[in-house]
Design a protein around this nucleic acid. Structure first.
Length: 508
RNA sequence: GGCCCGUUCGUCUAAGGGUUAGGACACCACCCUUUCACGGUGGUGAUACGAGUUCGAAUCUCGUACGGGCUACCA
């Protein structure tokens, strides 16, 4: 069994991609790369009523931002296409009919109204299940119950119908999940799932099996929410292509919000993003914020996602994509769901900002500042500023407050922080210090600091009491890196100018 | 309700029969710093419960409780 590793991410384009989705992509990608295999993306758009314009493009934009590009997809091409199920529509019917022919499925002509009635009746009977299963299928209108020749007649007349799988009455279906080990189900408890819908499109159950076969998928990974329908897929593999050709399965643990499976609502309610990037619902115009726009680095995003349900067994927590590819293993993926913790997510981002070199941050910081009306100029100053302030930035937008004042003279000064302790002596000090700066030969942190302290001693004022006023004059507020570092980068002219500009505002 | 999956500090997790049950986030204290952070040191804090197997169980088995998922002509 040395089949080439081929895995797939199979989203349905119905909206933004959330944390769980991206993590599924990530684990697929890591597994494929680790084993030198292929990672494909297949668009599962068999439900036309749920089609959302822009959603497919959004998925690819997200993968690109994350650096998890597929080897084969609608956008990347490949030999196993088309990669959009709606374009593969004609492939599915023959498999469904083959199943009918072999006695593993049947035609069903029940109308939605009849199904509804069946469910109502069963409910009032206070039976446990309201499923279309072996206990009731002989009471419904299908090719199992119709008189000889009746089915053919209906079919020939073009009657709306679906094809349902005929679940065995007494069988135990089991398979080995790479994460959970052996999992088994009693077929008598599973309903006769629809395989082919009345509109001729396959349901997920048929499509996933047929396409995984046609695309030669070796390992099928998906979220835990699919576990209950696995027996249907196992049976389909057995009937159609043989169990020996079936991919190996792994069902990933769910990513949980404060209450249950993480949802878009959780994000809005608790104030953290759940989508990878901003998503605007084309129908309602509602915007859901993304990690990207919130100020996360893709490296951090991937890192935090990888650790939500997996670890390498050591105490290492910071991994680059390359390290993840090297160290990832399905055996170390957890079976229990993981609750998402936004505080920890921010910690990852902070670590990655600190870890990142200036060149990796330059573009983002520049565009952020520009967007906020700051003219940045050449890379030289920008690079120095980034190097100086990045340790105090958790999210990218933190760079705005931490560095705007390097490029733009403050418009307002927080004089209230200084005024209560302000006096004539201090004012004299700054007049003198500005003059001293003006004539300074050396312009660096050490020189600035020592001349500041010397002058303070000379004027008999504690240097500590003068630092906050200096900061306010240069920065405008109580923030930013150490003052002398600020003055150094600001340069002589600008530093002196800001002192002279703000000094009168303090009065006396 | 039925079926399936799961259960170690508040959160993410390590420890696959023998450890004072380790680390990280968050929190608290102290140090550094008379901006705010970063950083450093220390601290609070967990094996859901009950049986069993075993000389020995967080680790294996069973039961209970709790949590989650699924139960559509949606994926």
């Amino acid at each position: 069994m040395s089949k080439r590793v081929r895995v797939r991410f199979a989203p349905s384009p119905t909206g933004g991609l959330h944390l769980g989705g991206v993590r599924t992509v990530l684990y697929n990608y890591l597994f494929a790369k680790k084993h030198g295999g292929d990672f494909l993306v297949r668009i599962e758009d068999t439900d036309q009523s749920r089609y959302v314009p822009g959603a497919e493009e959004y998925i690819f934009d997200t993968l690109k931002w994350c650096g998890l590009e597929p080897d084969e997809s609608v956008q990347h091409g490949g030999k196993a296409g088309p990669y959009r199920q709606s374009e593969r529509k004609d492939k599915y019917r023959e498999y469904a009919e083959q199943l009918v022919k072999d006695g593993y499925a049947y035609y069903a002509f029940d109308t939605p109204g009849e199904l509804e009635k069946m469910r109502q009746d069963l409910k009032t009977e206070h039976h446990s299940s309201s499923q279309y299963d072996h206990t009731i299928r002989m009471k419904m209108k299908n090719s199992l119950t119709l008189a000889e020749g009746e089915t053919e007649k209906l079919l020939a007349a073009g009657t709306k119908h679906v094809i349902r799988i005929k679940m065995p009455e007494q069988e135990t279906v089991s398979f080995t999940d790479m994460i959970r080990g052996e999992v088994s189900f009693e077929t008598s408890l599973v309903d006769d799932k629809v395989l082919l819908k009345a509109d001729g499109m396959p349901t997920y159950h048929l499509a996933v099996v047929v396409d995984d076969h046609l695309m030669e998928i070796s390992h099928a990974f998906r979220g835990e929410e699919w576990l209950p329908s696995a027996p249907v897929h196992i049976l389909l593999w057995k009937y159609l292509f043989g169990l020996e050709n079936m991919p190996q399965w792994a069902h990933f643990p769910l990513i949980l919000g404060p209450t249950g499976k993480l949802s878009k609502r959780d994000g809005a309610k608790y104030g953290f993003p759940v989508f990878a990037m901003n998503w605007t619902d084309p129908k309602t115009g509602e915007l859901t914020e993304g990690f990207k726009e919130k100020g996360f680095l893709p490296e951090a995003f991937i890192n935090l996602l990888a650790l939500l349900g997996w670890n390498d067994g050591t105490e290492q927590e910071l991994f680059s994509k390359e390290e993840l590819v090297e160290k990832f293993s399905m055996e170390r993926v957890h079976s229990a769901g993981a609750k998402f913790d936004y505080e920890k997510a921010k910690w990852f981002n902070h670590e990655w900002i600190k870890k990142s070199g200036v060149q990796g941050l330059r573009f983002e910081v520049r565009s952020l500042l520009t967007k906020n009306g700051i003219t940045v100029g050449d890379d030289n100053l920008l690079d120095n500023v980034i190097e100086l302030v990045k340790d105090r930035c958790t999210l990218l937008p933190d760079f705005i407050q931490q560095s705007s004042f390097f490029f733009k003279t403050p418009e307002t000064w927080d004089t209230e922080s200084v005024k209560p302790k302000w006096n004539q002596d201090k004012k004299n000090f700054f007049v003198a210090y500005a003059e001293k700066m003006q004539s300074a030969g050396e312009w660096n942190v050490a020189a600035l600091e020592s001349s500041f302290k010397e002058l303070a001693v000379e004027k008999n004022i504690k240097p500590g009491e003068l630092q906050l006023p200096l900061r306010i004059m240069l920065v405008g507020g109580k923030f930013g890196p150490p003052v002398f570092h600020i003055a150094e980068l600001l340069g002589k002219e600008e530093s002196v100018r800001r002192i002279n500009l703000s000094l009168p505002l303090l009065g006396i």
